[in-house]
Design a protein around this nucleic acid. Structure first.
Length: 303
DNA sequence: ACGATTTGACCCGC
DNA sequence: GCGGGTCAAATCGT
């Protein structure tokens, strides 16, 4: 039995992530007792930064699996190699989840979307769960081969709580837009829509190291990094007015490791990045709470 | 007419 | 065999 890629490398990542998360937690603590607006802002940045970095690493590791192992399916085929299909096995995809709460007062008809357009492709009753789980994938899966997917499930007890788990990395052009539209409009020339994630991941990691020291007073530290962070759903959610970021995000890799974090976050970001750049407030997968429409979102398929 | 959603069937890993 | 995830035909909405 061997793991996907050098476990030493993974160990390193794991440690790094761990540190980052602890760091984030500390900031979150401070955030709670921070009095001045400035301090809070600063701390918020820090917190996001920690998460961002962690995710970047997670994503990076996910890609690593795919590339170096040409599929990353740990077992079942040891001598069987699919021709150059980087058909990322789901297992090796980066994955994280977060809880989102629908603000009671806010109109439920507002859109909560994480900036991407999703298409629902399935719904399933989950054992022990009161509500069904919705399965979504990126609208551009077919056209652009974007593999990102997510699952949305309403919490048993608290109907105002949604648990969303994301998988895979957005490689669609939308990824470039989301990441930049929302935080701040300072695109860099390198943000072409053509970049594949494999490159982006690495670049991102590198960039991050530079930019971590460079962000000035951008609204969000993440703004400067390309594509990748679009997967940072947690922050995308924070920006929404109707949904409060609930303060719990967990990342997990395939290697049986998972890290959970809870913190008292009060997302207060404002801007407006929705899937449709201009008009139609496309319903979000999360909030259709009609008896008829458990979730909005997308549904779709693939040959 | 076309794209999105619904929903039962199918597939696959445990 | 069971449960979770995906497919794809039918249906719905625009």
């Amino acid at each position: 039995m061997e793991k996907n890629h050098s476990s030493g490398e993974w160990e390193k990542m794991k440690n790094e992530i761990n540190e980052l998360m602890i760091e984030g937690r500390d900031y979150a603590h401070q955030f709670g007792s921070a009095s001045s607006q400035e301090t809070r802002e600063h701390l918020a940045k820090k917190i996001l930064q920690s998460y961002h970095k962690s995710l970047t690493i997670m994503n990076y590791s996910g890609e690593l699996d795919q590339v170096s192992q040409g599929g990353g399916s740990p077992k079942s085929d040891d001598s069987d190699q699919e021709p150059l299909v980087i058909k990322s096995s789901k297992k090796s995809m980066p994955r994280w989840s977060s809880k989102v709460r629908i603000a009671p007062g806010a109109g439920v008809d507002r859109t909560l979307d994480d900036g991407f357009s999703w298409r629902k492709y399935g719904q399933k009753d989950i054992l022990g769960a009161k509500f069904p789980r919705g399965y979504y994938r990126c609208t551009y899966r077919k056209s652009q081969g974007c593999e990102a997917t997510k699952q949305v499930q309403r919490s048993d007890e608290n109907q105002m709580l949604l648990e969303i788990s994301y998988r895979g990395i957005h490689s669609c052009s939308q990824a470039a837009n989301v990441g930049t539209t929302m935080p701040i409009q300072n695109l860099e020339p390198n943000q072409t829509q053509e970049h594949g994630n494999l490159d982006m991941v690495k670049e991102s990691v590198d960039n991050y190291n530079h930019q971590a020291h460079l962000h000035h007073n951008l609204h969000y530290p993440l703004s400067s990094t390309p594509n990748l962070e679009n997967n940072n759903a947690y922050m995308l959610q924070m920006r929404d007015q109707n949904i409060e970021y609930f303060g719990s995000t967990s990342f997990s890799s395939d290697l049986g490791t998972s890290i959970n974090y809870n913190f008292p976050a009060s997302g207060s970001a404002s801007h407006s990045a929705s899937n449709s750049p201009s008009t139609v407030p496309l319903e979000s997968p999360f909030e259709s709470y009609d008896p008829n429409h458990p979730y909005g979102g997308f549904g779709g398929f693939y040959s």
